[in-house]
Design a protein around this nucleic acid. Structure first.
Lengths: 155, 155
DNA sequence: TATTGTTATACTCTATAACTATA
DNA sequence: TATAGTTATAGAGTATAACAATA
């Protein structure tokens, strides 16, 4: 919400509102798989870095250690990831995705991909590239770290 | 967070992350004035519709009635808005911005405008218009109501 | 009987800091 | 002494539903 103008709401307001809408949509798309955005992020991070420690995983996602515990607890209780002992450091837990976790993740990815296609269906190839370029520019201007979604637990 | 690709994160993820970053920035810009985004929205809405009832204001912003009470309480305690009696319906409160409220709002608007200019400084006039057009397209695709920021209290 | 504003309650989410076991 | 993980506790924020006054 910001200064109103003759040509619609301010760009920052529009950007924030559309981004929020996209996040809401994403949440609803993965909800049928029993995942919320943070759980999805952890599952995806562990899948792409098997054996990562709990706190290292949290650090890359900007999630606090004490929140990682509950997050990993839920995923482990549902049999989607495992805590294994790290032979070189017995304080740390090596996180691994189970076969069931991979199946859920793959199906969720498909649903997310279908949703992306639907949301940006009205835009042609050139428009999507243009939107990506413009968003990167704004991200840089805002000082956002690349590849990290803010608001996951640490600011 | 969604399907990773060779040309960076998925557009939906990027959009959500940048939108969140813009919202965070907005929050930090108005924070020195003692306002959070919802208070700013209420103040702005009342300023542009003097005498509006509390629940009508909440409905236009998608804020629940019981939250409007606390929200208006705070603004009233700080002398920024007033609850007056509505002569035609004594159940309703007519909301009005006080002179002090107008001063705060004007100064906050200035700060928000300066921030907008800074955030989009790297984009030329044509790029801003393009970004606006693309965001409108996505907003329509997401089914977002125009002029309303989701996440203020009712989905 | 419906509506405006209000309050009370219970619930979720979160940060903080203390604790353990290892290093 | 420092670190990985865990747990406990207290606080903020919220939705829900009940309530009083008025329509």
């Amino acid at each position: 919400m910001a200064r109103p103008g003759p040509d619609g709401p301010p760009l920052g307001f529009l950007l924030s509102a559309v981004g929020f809408g996209a996040a809401q949509r994403f949440r609803s798309v993965i909800e049928p798989f029993g995942l919320d955005p943070r759980q999805f992020a952890v599952l995806r991070a562990v899948a792409s870095d098997e054996g990562v420690s709990q706190q290292a995983c949290g650090a890359s996602l900007r999630v606090q250690p004490s929140r990682m515990v509950a997050l990993v607890d839920e995923l482990e209780d549902r049999g989607l990831i495992e805590r294994r002992v790290n032979p070189t450091d017995r304080r740390a837990r090596a996180l691994h995705v189970t076969p069931a976790g991979r199946r859920i993740l793959a199906r969720a990815f498909e649903a997310v991909g279908r949703n992306e296609a639907a949301v940006f269906a009205a835009l042609g190839e050139a428009d999507r590239a243009e939107l990506r370029r413009l968003l990167y520019s704004v991200a840089a201007s805002l000082g956002l770290p690349p590849g990290v979604h803010p608001g996951m637990g640490i600011e």
